[in-house]
Design a binder for these strands. Structure first.
Length: 493
RNA sequence: GCACCGGUGGCGAAGUGGCUAACGCGCUGGUCUGCAAAACCAGUAUUCAUGGGUUCAAAUCCCAUUCGGUGCUCCA
């Protein structure tokens, strides 16, 4: 059992991650705003949180993980109005898509999901608590704001010093009623035509930051072990959560803060205007596999800026293939009884290195390297005929450990891609799908098996021309045939 | 503009003061194969953006320049 060291934004250094209030690690992760399909940047964050929760559990610590679903905010209101539908109807579709995407990427579901619109009473109670202390105040239009002057520690997470900010500076013309420029909205007064809730605070809707404070406290208490999110959320979102929660409870809100760095795409910031903005679905339609996308996004440690490129996506596809091929090889019977001591040592070292790497601030790159070291050593021994049955058993156990976090060995890719194609069909976006993808998937496994059998028959009669024709034909449709000592296998490229 | 983070082989990417600079992919040659594929072996950065400095010793520390990113404003 390793002690997990994790960088804590609050202290600015790596600290042991340990549950305090009970056996389980109580963690909260800022979830999606369901106004559009999730992009690979969103999923880099969710994937690294998945790596964390999987590894924590692997180390014997149960987790109680909460993720919010923001289903009311400015963008949602704007987009729903543009589409002419109620916001609940608008968000339902993207929420469903989000869950499908989580499953495609093999991201474990948190123990609790919580919708913002399902926790309005809790938010109201929290704001009332702040109002009773005169930390929340109401403006003439009926909105409520948080009085930052009453929270001297403001800025402690993002290490910002706001002394230079003039109290009462008028910077935002829309919010001229605030007492101070930095004061942020807790509750927004209703505007004509907008979705609103009638509450003791007045008629309106919640501000953005209050939902996380209310939901985290409701489900995990007011003293949480870990809170995670993308680096951009550090300020102002998380800073505001701290201010609200700690002002209300009087004690530290969260012990450990984890922030995942942004990624670049082809060396540039990902943005729609750069033309390098990709949702998960965009990539699936281009023919990239869900497993390769997962593997790539978690291969670079979460605190490093990663450069997402299509070359590296191909690299990941091949790397995952190699792991799967190796896994199949170890599953095959036929190794002689006994144990090769050198390989046993290499296996033990791989397990040690893997665990040490992840325990060291989730160094996924080194954990990956540890497993590939084992793959090479074991393949080499297997080629030389010196790998024994007991080695295979041990190696499979270490592979299972590795896959408990990386989660790419099971091949669900074709099914996921089929689902994406079906979705594209419904959405009228099937023309975006790579043509060879459609061709490959139009072949059923049974079709392929039949052709492979025909080729094997042709080979037996030494009709190599026919055998090669079948192989080339399938290859052109993205299906690769491999002959091995143990028989023929095929896979979709 | 101010603050912070980073620039490591063809590509992705570990390593942050001291053994031959991990690992993956790619490429070249070899083994195996009817031919391939898979797998293995060998080769593929005397060097870590550039220039200076500190040190017995630097990719790792310091300064400058340059490029990329983030925050200061909605954003994973």
């Amino acid at each position: 059992m390793a002690t997990i060291e994790l960088f804590n934004t609050l202290g600015g250094k790596t600290e042991p991650l340990t549950p305090v209030g009970g056996p389980a690690l109580r963690m909260y992760c800022c979830g999606p705003t369901v106004y559009d399909y999730g992009h690979i940047g969103n999923f880099r964050t969710f994937l690294h949180v998945d790596v964390l929760r999987r590894f924590v559990r692997q180390q014997g610590i149960p987790v109680n993980h909460v993720m919010n679903i923001t289903d009311v905010d400015d963008k949602i209101i704007r987009n729903a109005a543009a589409a002419g539908v109620p916001i609940a109807q608008y968000t339902a579709r993207y929420e469903r898509a989000f869950f499908e995407d989580l499953d495609a990427l093999n991201i474990e579901h948190p123990e609790h999901f919580s919708r913002a619109t399902g926790c309005i009473p809790e938010m109201v109670t929290l704001i009332e608590k702040l109002a009773a202390k005169d930390i929340a105040y109401k403006t003439e239009d009926g909105s409520w704001y948080f009085r930052i002057a009453r929270f001297p520690e403001y800025g402690k997470l993002s290490k910002k010093d706001f002394d230079g900010i003039e109290d009462g500076a008028r910077v935002d013309v829309d919010e001229y009623e605030k007492d101070a420029a930095r004061d942020f909205a807790l509750w927004k007064a209703v505007k004509p035509g907008e979705q609103s809730w009638d509450t003791p605070l007045g008629t309106g809707r919640p501000g953005w930051h209050i939902e996380c404070s209310a939901m985290a406290t409701k489900l995990l208490g007011d003293d949480i072990d870990l809170h995670a999110g993308g680096e951009d959320l550090m300020f102002p979102h998380h800073e505001n959560e701290i201010a609200q929660s700690e002002s209300a409870s009087g004690n530290p809100f969260v012990r450990h803060w984890m922030h995942v760095r942004f990624l670049l795409v082809e060396g540039r910031k990902m943005s729609k205007s750069e033309g390098n903005f990709y949702t998960l679905r965009d990539l699936l339609l281009k023919g990239y596999r869900a497993s390769a996308i997962r593997f790539l996004l978690i291969s670079v440690p979460y605190r490093n800026q990663m450069n997402f490129t299509f070359d590296s996506l191909t690299e990941s596809t091949n790397a995952v293939d190699r792991l799967r091929t190796f896994h199949q090889r170890m599953l095959k019977d036929g190794f002689a009884e006994g144990l090769n001591a050198d390989i046993a040592a290499a296996t033990a070292k791989a397990e040690q290195d893997y665990t040490a790497a992840l325990a060291n601030d989730l160094n996924t790159a080194e954990a990956r390297a540890a497993i590939f070291d084992l793959v090479r050593a074991a393949n080499s021994a297997a080629d030389a005929g010196s790998l024994r049955a007991e080695n295979a058993t041990q190696i499979l156990r270490v592979l299972a450990l590795f896959d408990g976090v990386f989660a790419v060995l099971e091949d669900r890719d074709a099914a996921i891609t089929r689902a994406a194609l079906a979705w594209a069909e419904v959405e009228g976006r099937i023309d975006e799908a790579a043509p060879e993808l459609v061709a490959t998937l139009s072949f059923s496994d049974a079709d392929i098996d039949a052709l492979v059998a025909e080729r094997t028959q042709a080979k037996k009669t030494r009709n190599f021309a026919r055998a090669d024709a079948i192989r080339n034909d399938l290859l052109a449709k993205g299906i690769l045939i491999e002959d091995s000592k143990d028989g023929v296998r095929w896979k979709r490229k």
